[in-house]
């Protein structure tokens, strides 16, 4: 499959888990610390022993931005990107349906869904967990 650029030998496993609709991130086998993006060692204890754990997929909004001009071929404007704190304590940054932008607020619950990237791979995305604001 055409895939995203890989930045380490550990990225492949993560993208394969995304393709299955069950995104996994690394967790240190010795001290239990999560890490994202994938990498060779634990930033807490330097252990290179790790396991892959599926994320809960739930978290809270930290911030967001909206592009009003297209920069990336896969993302025509307007397009909105959200940074969220996952329940695991790691930050995930990805996009949300632009129509949901007006309902975004700091600390709003959010959950991961999966979508298709035009280059032929799947990506995790966000949607508001509690639906649009009333």
């Amino acid at each position: 499959m055409a895939g995203p650029r890989l930045y380490s030998p550990f990225d492949k496993t993560m993208w394969e888990s995304v393709a299955e609709g069950k995104m996994k991130i690394q967790r240190c086998e010795e001290c239990g610390t999560y890490r994202y993006p994938p990498g060779a060692c634990c930033p807490n204890c330097l252990s290179t022993e790790m396991q892959w754990e599926e994320i809960s997929g739930t978290g809270k909004v930290l911030s967001w931005i909206t592009y009003h001009k297209q920069y990336l071929p896969a993302y025509p404007a307007p397009t909105t990107v959200v940074a969220a704190m996952l329940d695991e304590g790691e930050i995930l940054i990805t996009n949300i349906d632009h129509a949901e932008t007006k309902d975004l607020a700091v600390d709003r619950p959010i959950r991961v869904i999966y979508g298709d990237h035009p280059d032929g791979y799947r990506i995790p995305r966000f949607t508001l967990a509690d639906g649009p604001a009333s």
């Binding site: 995203p4 650029r5 920069y71």
Partner: peptide, 17 residues
């Protein structure tokens, strides 16, 4: 560079966030 597949690109966008 890391978040380009997810739609985030440019240093300006990081500061906008």
């Amino acid at each position: 560079v890391y978040h380009a597949p997810f739609g985030l690109t440019s240093q300006g966008a990081l500061y906008a966030m």
